[in-house]
């Protein structure tokens, strides 16, 4: 799926194509696996918060307040891969 194709989808408001691309990206080319990976990251994030551990909210708020949109979007993808790695179930062939 080319970048031009994604830009066309964005222009057309075709969110299904965009999210399909995300699933393919995080699922190593397998859309079904990608959907599971997205779920896995959310489950992992929820899991570590269930017991209400201390969190550095000042860091989070400062980061959200001071960093640009692109860096935060990249952080979102980075956190996804970090969380799925933390879950212990790693489907990818290589290494972060």
């Amino acid at each position: 799926m080319s970048l031009a194709h994604l830009r066309d989808a964005l222009t057309a408001g075709d969110n299904e194509t965009l999210i399909r691309y995300v699933r393919l990206h995080v699922g190593d080319g397998d859309e079904v696996a990608g959907r599971r990976e997205i779920d896995k990251a959310w489950v992992q994030a929820l899991t570590v918060l269930l017991d209400l551990p201390d969190v550095d909210r000042a860091f989070v708020l400062e980061t959200l307040r001071t960093r640009d949109h692109a860096t935060l979007a990249h952080l979102f993808f980075s956190l996804h891969f970090h969380l799925v790695q933390q879950s212990g179930e790693w489907i990818h062939d290589g290494d972060l």
């Binding site: 190593d28 990818h92 062939d93 290589g94 290494d95 972060l96």
Partner: peptide
Amino acid sequence: EIHQLKYPT
């Protein structure tokens, strides 16, 4: 070291 996700390492 290797940093990539797309081939078995």
